[in-house]
Amino acid sequence: MKIGNWKMWACFALVGASASCNTVEFYEKGDLGTPVMIMSQDTGLTHFEQKIMYSIEGAAGGVGAAAGGGCGCY
């Protein structure tokens, strides 16, 4: 086993990190599907909010956002 095999270590890190989370049984997940638990939102609203924040703040990038491009400056 070569220590320099980055793919193997990446797999270990990925599987290890995800496996460390508690598994929730399928019949316990009903609460996660209620309307108040839906984290995504209308794409038109996302576009509007991101464009505003991009023009207001010096920082860009994060949830749902590509930092830079696609927007002229006001």
């Binding site: 599907g33 309307p35 638990m37 839906i38 984290m39 995504s40 939102q41 794409t43 949830v63 749902g64």
Partner: peptide
């Protein structure tokens, strides 16, 4: 998850990193 249906326990609901 976008449709707001309750239940569907087999579903992985996903996050907000969405286009489409």
């Amino acid at each position: 998850a976008q449709d707001g249906q309750v239940g569907e326990p087999e579903t992985l609901f996903g996050g907000s990193n969405t286009f489409g």
